[in-house]
Simulated scan of single mutants.
Amino acid sequence: MTMTLQDVVAVLGPVDETLVSAVIATGATQAELAEAWAWISNDEALMGEGRRLPTGRVATLADLLKDDEDEEIE
């Protein structure tokens, strides 16, 4: 099922409409978005648990979130 604005905001909080559109366009699920957000927020802990690096849509989402985070810093 395609995510909605509310699904994205439920995971990420208030975010830019451009990011919301990009996230929805991936076709990912809310669970995949939550996993990508976990990787961006705390990758060392996940690697410490022995988790493999994200692939597929989760990796795509993680890249989008990382790029957005980097833009906010600049």
Rank of each mutant, 00 (worst) to 15 (best):
A31T: 10
L19S: 03
P54Y: 14
V15A: 02
D43W: 10
T18G: 08
T29E: 02
R57W: 10
G48R: 07
E17L: 01
R51G: 04
T18Q: 13
V58G: 08
L33E: 07
D43C: 05
M47H: 11
R52Q: 13
L19E: 06
E32N: 03
E35M: 12
E32Q: 14
E44Y: 08
A34S: 13
Q30M: 04
L19I: 11
A28R: 00
S21L: 00
V15K: 03
S21G: 12
D43A: 11
A36D: 06
L53D: 09
A34F: 04
A34L: 03
A22W: 07
I24D: 03
E32F: 02
D16L: 00
G56N: 08
A45T: 14
I40H: 10
R52N: 12
R57K: 15
V23L: 03
A28D: 01
I40Y: 09
P14E: 06
A38C: 02
E32H: 02
A34G: 13
V15P: 05
E49R: 15
A38I: 00
T18Y: 09
T29W: 03
A38K: 02
R57I: 14
V20D: 05
D16I: 00
E44W: 08
A36N: 06
R51Y: 10
V58A: 06
S21C: 01
W37K: 09
T26S: 04
L19G: 08
A38G: 03
E35I: 04
R57Q: 15
M47G: 05
L53R: 09
G56V: 09
G27N: 01
P54H: 07
A38T: 03
G56L: 13
I40M: 15
R57F: 09
V20K: 03
T18R: 11
A38D: 07
T55C: 09
G48Q: 06
G27K: 02
T29I: 08
W37T: 02
N42G: 13
Q30T: 10
L19C: 10
A28H: 00
A36F: 03
Q30F: 02
G27M: 01
S41T: 07
Q30Y: 00
R51Q: 13
G48N: 04
T55P: 15
I24V: 09
G50I: 15
L46M: 12
P14Y: 04
D16K: 01
G48E: 07
W39T: 01
W37C: 02
W37E: 02
I24T: 01
S21A: 07
A22D: 15
M47Y: 14
A45N: 08
M47D: 01
N42I: 05
E49G: 11
A45D: 09
P14R: 06
D16N: 02
V15L: 00
M47E: 15
E49K: 15
A36I: 00
